[in-house]
Amino acid sequence: MQLGVVLWSILASVSNAGRRLRLAGMLLLPGLVVADNSPPLRVMTDFWPPFRIAGEGGQLRGLDMDLLAELERRTGLRFDVQRAPWSRGLAALKRGSADLMTGLARTPERERYIDFLERPYFTCAPRFYSLPALAHKVSGYSQLGQYDIGFVRGSAYFEPFDSDQDLRKVGVGNEGQLLDMLRYKRLPLVIGTDCQVDYELLRDPTLAGRIVKLAYRPPARTELFLGFTRQRPLQAQRQAIAQALEQMIDEGWVLDAARRYSPRAQ
Rank of each mutant, 00 (worst) to 15 (best):
M1Y: 14
Q2S: 11
S9N: 13
I10W: 10
L11S: 13
S15P: 05
R19F: 08
R19P: 04
L23Y: 10
L29Q: 15
L29E: 14
L29V: 13
P30V: 03
P30M: 01
A35C: 07
A35D: 03
D36K: 13
D36H: 14
L41P: 01
V43P: 02
T45R: 01
F47L: 15
F51W: 05
G55R: 04
E56N: 08
Q59A: 12
L60G: 12
L60A: 12
R61W: 05
D66H: 05
L71S: 00
E72Q: 13
L77H: 15
L77T: 02
L77V: 03
V81E: 06
V81D: 03
S87C: 15
R88D: 04
L90K: 05
A92R: 14
G96E: 09
A98R: 13
A98G: 13
A98M: 12
D99R: 08
M101A: 15
G103D: 06
R110G: 05
E111L: 02
R112E: 10
I114M: 06
L117S: 06
E118H: 11
E118Y: 06
R119L: 09
R119W: 09
P120N: 02
Y121Q: 00
T123G: 01
A125N: 06
P126F: 03
H136V: 09
H136M: 15
K137A: 15
G140I: 12
G140W: 06
Y147H: 10
I149W: 09
G150C: 01
F151L: 14
V152D: 01
S155P: 06
S155K: 12
S155G: 13
Y157H: 02
Y157C: 03
Y157N: 04
D164S: 03
D164P: 08
D166F: 11
D166V: 08
L167D: 02
L167N: 02
V172E: 00
G173N: 12
N174L: 07
G176M: 09
L178N: 11
M181R: 11
Y184R: 12
R186P: 05
L189I: 09
I191A: 02
V197L: 01
V197W: 01
D198I: 00
E200F: 05
E200T: 09
P205L: 03
I211D: 00
I211L: 11
V212E: 04
K213A: 11
K213N: 07
L214W: 01
A215E: 11
Y216R: 10
Y216H: 08
P218Y: 10
A220W: 08
A220N: 09
L224D: 00
R230V: 02
R230W: 06
Q231T: 05
P233R: 14
A236C: 06
R238T: 12
R238S: 08
Q239A: 11
A240I: 08
I241A: 02
M248A: 14
I249S: 00
G252Y: 07
A257Y: 07
R259Y: 08
R259S: 11
R260Y: 08
R260D: 10
P263R: 04
R264C: 15
A265K: 12
